[in-house]
Design a protein around this nucleic acid. Structure first.
Length: 590
RNA sequence: GCGCUGCUAGCUCAGCUGGAUAGAGCACCAGACUUCGAAUCUGGGGGUCGGGGGUUCGAAUCCCUCGCAGCGCGCCA
């Protein structure tokens, strides 16, 4: 999408006009704090601006006085019908009524592109999410990060960023060695050996049985004769590959697809990028040999005060400097992660977003410090933490124990309640708040279940079109064709307060997209959709009591057409928002 | 002890980065189905925004402080 096609939506247009009107009156004051927003109370008009209050001090004027002056200047704006000054200096704008109809025409024209923004200016953004260890199938805890990251990526694309979706495969640490040993046991089992109980410290899950079997099929007993290092390497590689295939399948079931799967091991094997990164940081003085104070908690028995290789993260706001080398000479996870983020920067990403589980919160400062150090302050890393998910069924906790290998997998949940329910429910909450996921509730068909409520709104709107054929027998059945037809509707027929309110709500969508994208908060889209659906259901029901407010009016094709145009606008945006969240927009739900 | 994240109606949660009288859903009470999907809608009661200070025209939002909860605080990943 080119900049020339950048649709200026109503709020950005008015913001520019307000700033233009205020500039000559406000002296050197900073206009960036001026906002144009929908007022809390609809009786205040269509839009409100804080310009006078924000600028008064720098302009050396009283807020009300400045407000009056700006208001006067705004009265000549072509879109504006009425300007009021209220309260401490709010300027309330009422737009000419035809503005809303024209915005609806824009919606019909743009279709699925309505709300698309050029805010991101095609800037490259790397969104890293999931990155679950390849040591087993995904469980419900991974799910939230997957859905969140995916929706955030969708949102950023829609807001005009050049997004790469990335998965970091932790295939180099001690955990994959454990995986290899666990899988080797299953391999022996597959060859007919009695292995007894899985020893403490190895992964007991049944999911490794298939790995053992495949190894047995391919190698027969020959692996047992190889040196241990080679045994483990072969088993490890196979196990990781099979686990990753499993994970990709799980992600697919959620509709989550990554562009890049980045192997941690690739940073070490071949040319040692971790070592190179450390050397580089040592040159710039960010890495040094030194000692650390003993840890503040946990068991300090095995703490050994020794000189080690440290990253000076305290220079960037971290609490303590962080080790890069283990006592066995291997790199710490952190060291690899620095090299990994440097690789992102090398690949042109100055904007990075990592989605982590809340238990990694303590890791943020050091990673941001590292990103600053490695990029010379040019790159920025935002870390979004997704909080714990508590799995419930009808209010009762679903038991799960990862240690026994008997945990609820992502796949089981998706198979039970469906992709849309999982996704919407996980997104209908701020990422940093704990989430109760109730398997019984998410498939409930009621207003209490937001997924259903929004999807039902979409289905109900489609149902209106199905019924409209009685009045308009030649009504096309594709959205695009209907939109083309409705563009010529007489929008001034949309004069009922409920209809106008819906039009205003629709016009808010582009602004919402930009705000949600800027804040990296896809949940705002979910809440907006719920509100839009709610207004639509309300208007629909009003027609139940007051037949003249129905969308389909017998023997009045003009009014019917205008109202169907509104419904088309609603369908367009419900579908657009649901698509961003990765949730299906069904045409019927009977 | 330190850090991070939370704390908003009885319950589950929003609150658009500092705006006007703090909003939804559930639950509760009272209503609306011969006709566009009642899987819905309309109205009502319900608040010390965890407590206390501060910043300013203005604070749920920013700062300080205290309390509560979860997570983290080794060369694990």
């Amino acid at each position: 999408m080119t900049a020339a096609k950048a649709p200026q939506h109503l709020f950005t247009t008015m913001l520019a006009r307000v700033r233009a009107a205020a500039a000559p009156l406000a002296g050197k004051a900073d206009l960036s704090r001026v906002v144009v927003e929908p007022p809390r109370d609809a009786s205040h008009g269509d839009m409100a601006t804080n310009a006078a209050m924000v600028l008064a001090k720098d302009a050396g004027k009283k807020p009300r006085e400045l407000a009056d002056a700006i208001a006067e200047a705004l009265r000549s704006e072509p879109l504006v019908a009425k300007v009021d000054v209220a309260g401490p200096g709010f300027i309330n704008l009422t737009l000419k009524s035809h503005v809303w109809g024209e915005e609806l025409r824009v919606i019909l024209d743009s279709g699925a592109d309505y709300g698309r923004s050029t805010m991101g200016a095609n800037e490259k953004v790397n969104v890293e999410y999931v990155s679950a260890n390849p040591t087993g199938p995904m469980h419900i805890g991974h799910c939230r990060g997957a859905v969140f990251g995916d929706a955030l990526a969708n949102l950023l694309v829609f807001a005009g960023y050049d997004v790469t979706r990335e998965y970091y495969i932790n295939d180099a640490g001690a955990q994959v060695d454990v995986l290899a040993r666990s899988a080797f046991l299953r391999y022996r089992e597959a060859l007919g050996e009695a292995i007894g109980d899985i020893p403490e410290g190895l992964y007991p899950g049944d999911y490794l049985i298939a790995v053992g079997k495949e190894l047995a099929d391919e190698y027969g007993p020959s692996l047992k004769d190889k040196p241990e290092a080679e045994q483990l390497r072969i088993v490890r590689d196979r196990a990781v590959d099979m686990m990753m295939a499993e994970i990709r399948n799980d992600l697919m079931s959620l509709g989550v697809v990554h562009d890049v799967f980045f192997s941690e091991r690739s940073l070490i094997e071949g040319k040692d990028q971790v070592g190179a990164t450390i050397a580089e940081l040592r040159k710039s003085g960010e890495v040094y040999e030194g000692r650390l104070p003993p840890p503040k908690s946990g068991n300090v028995e095995d703490w050994e005060d020794r000189e080690q290789t440290l990253f000076r993260s305290t220079g960037f706001g971290d609490d303590v400097d962080r080790p890069l080398l283990k006592s066995d000479g291997g790199y710490t996870y952190f060291a690899s992660d620095i090299a990994y983020h440097r690789s992102k920067i090398d690949r042109g990403f100055l904007k990075m977003i990592d989605v982590w589980g809340a238990d990694h919160g303590g890791y943020i400062k050091r990673m941001q410090a590292a990103v600053k150090a490695v990029s010379g302050g040019k790159a920025a890393l935002d870390v979004k933490l997704v909080q714990l998910v508590r799995l419930l069924r009808a209010g009762e906790p679903v038991k799960m124990s990862k240690r026994s290998g008997d945990f609820v997998t992502l796949r089981e949940v998706v198979d039970e309640v469906g992709r849309s329910a999982v996704r919407f429910d996980m997104l209908y909450r701020k990422n940093d708040a704990v989430l109760d996921f109730d398997l019984a509730k998410v498939i409930e068909a009621s207003r209490d279940n937001p997924v259903f409520y929004v999807q039902y709104g979409h289905a109900r709107a489609q149902s209106v079109f199905r019924n409209a054929r009685t009045e308009m027998p030649d009504l096309p059945d594709t959205g695009a064709a209907r939109a083309a037809l409705f563009k010529s509707a007489a929008f001034d027929r949309l004069s009922d307060e409920g209809e106008l309110s819906l039009l205003r709500k629709l016009a808010l969508y582009p602004r919402l997209i930009e705000a949600a994208a800027a804040a990296h908060e896809p949940h705002r889209v979910a809440f907006y959709l719920y509100e839009l659906a709610s207004e639509f259901h309300g208007q629909w029901s009003r027609g139940k009591d007051l037949p003249h407010l129905r969308f389909i009016i017998q023997n009045d094709p003009e009014t019917t057409k205008a109202r169907l145009a509104l419904v088309q606008g609603i369908v367009t945006i419900l579908a657009s928002g649901l698509a961003l969240l990765g949730v299906e927009a069904p045409d019927e739900m009977r």
